[in-house]
Design a protein around this nucleic acid. Structure first.
Lengths: 235, 235
DNA sequence: GCGCACTACGTACGCTGTACGTAACTAGGA
DNA sequence: TCCTAGTTACGTACAGCGTACGTAGTGCGC
């Protein structure tokens, strides 16, 4: 019945400096920047405690003075790139403002393809996340609705953007780690898929794939999805 | 310029049995079932090649005869639980049918909390995924739109459901791995959050949290989200 | 100025995915 | 019918991971 020995830990509640002992050689911002740099260059797999420590130029275990668990390192990363969000004075047109927010989020995720994987409501209350949420709520001031509803719309909107960009990036992200090219693998997948479709067991899928559609315009699809979600909230 | 030595590999294109050599001791279904069992009981972290092999009662490296890469094991798992989808004769009311699909997907993910993490368009063409997609398209037969648009709506719908359930489950999933209880950690987070909010820097967030809202009805929120997405497609 | 809390970091443990080598087995072609 | 090539089975080994622990050294608060 005992169990659960340790004490809960949230990195944002822990002060960066306590006063006692030698001055820390790095700030949280330094550490987050190093981790983000590694992730941008080599994907999320390149972010290990050892690599980040090496990037900072310190011993592996020293890092644990700043970041007690690896998950906290992830929180730092998400918060750090969250700071890249440009915040502006709301225009009064909440739809336009939210569209702008969504496009910015998408750009952010394209700059940092590892971000969707780390996105989680658990990281929702870091300092920069709070600033971002406050800004989104400010954009929605013209809207007459309880904050609960507004937060729901924001969650839906962010969820859709995250999912969409994650799908957009999934294949590209895979390419980095695999020993063959994306086109090669796609070819194999399509070949298999073609066999299945030709079997006649999936007539609609077959029709969907033989349907002559022009090249997909990812920008247009994203904008369409966005408008649908916003429409849905206030038609 | 050489590089990229290996050959692309898609597990569904590889036959289960080639005829030569001793008969395999397990089927793909056996392996997938074992992995799913482990993941259901101990979370996704409990799914390692060693554990799955032990669960099957064979040596670790023997597993590699069936599953060349761990990612393939994941594909087997996603496909296996995809087979739990109940498919029915479309009713003619595409909205009702898609709602039913979404609720079923949610139930599926609540039965297998690790599923959202593995969901990815990459696994979109496994046998059971094809059956599922075909069924969804059949449900949308009454709808007059090109298949491309229908697939986009399905992607949006599935993406939203996945994100929503992932958020729903994220905290619960964390609890399993952490040495303290969810309530304890939430308390620490709320305490920190309270401090930030009391600082006055985030007036709208403060209002949102002091707003007297009844207890959140997760079912209702999910239904609301669903209707918004479906509305958005055909108001 | 004493002591304590902090920083720094080397070592070590258990775990992971998986490359490789070896032995046993069986179906297809001669 | 026998041979052999391709397959299964699996032990060993390696590089990498997160991180518990122990030991120094450092500098602020009392």
């Amino acid at each position: 019945m005992a169990g659960r020995p340790a004490v809960p830990h949230v990195i944002w509640a822990r002060p960066e400096r306590t006063g006692r002992g030698p001055r820390p050689a790095f700030s949280r911002a330094d550490i987050a920047a190093a981790a983000v740099r590694l992730a941008d260059e080599g994907g999320l797999d390149a972010v290990s405690m050892r690599h980040v420590a090496a990037e900072l130029g310190c011993g592996t275990m020293s890092l644990y003075n700043y970041v007690p668990r690896k998950e906290d390192l992830y929180e730092l990363m998400v918060d750090a790139v969250g700071g890249e969000h440009e915040l502006w004075e709301p225009s009064g047109d909440w739809r336009a403002d939210l569209r702008r927010v969504a496009h910015q989020t998408r750009e952010l995720m394209r700059r940092h393809p590892w971000l969707p994987r780390l996105m989680s409501p658990v990281y929702g209350f870091s300092p920069n996340a709070l600033r971002f949420l406050e800004h989104c709520l400010a954009c929605m001031d013209p809207l007459d609705a309880p904050y609960g509803t507004k937060l729901q719309l924001l969650a839906l909107l962010n969820g859709c953007v995250t999912t969409y960009v994650a799908n957009e990036l999934a294949t590209a992200e895979r390419t980095r780690a695999l020993p063959w090219s994306e086109e090669q693998e796609n070819q194999v997948r399509i070949a298999y898929l073609g066999g299945q479709i030709a079997s006649g067991a999936y007539p609609r899928m077959a029709a969907a794939f033989t349907e002559d559609a022009g090249p997909i315009d990812l920008e247009a699809v994203f904008a369409w999805m966005l408008d649908r979600v916003l429409d849905s909230f206030a038609p």
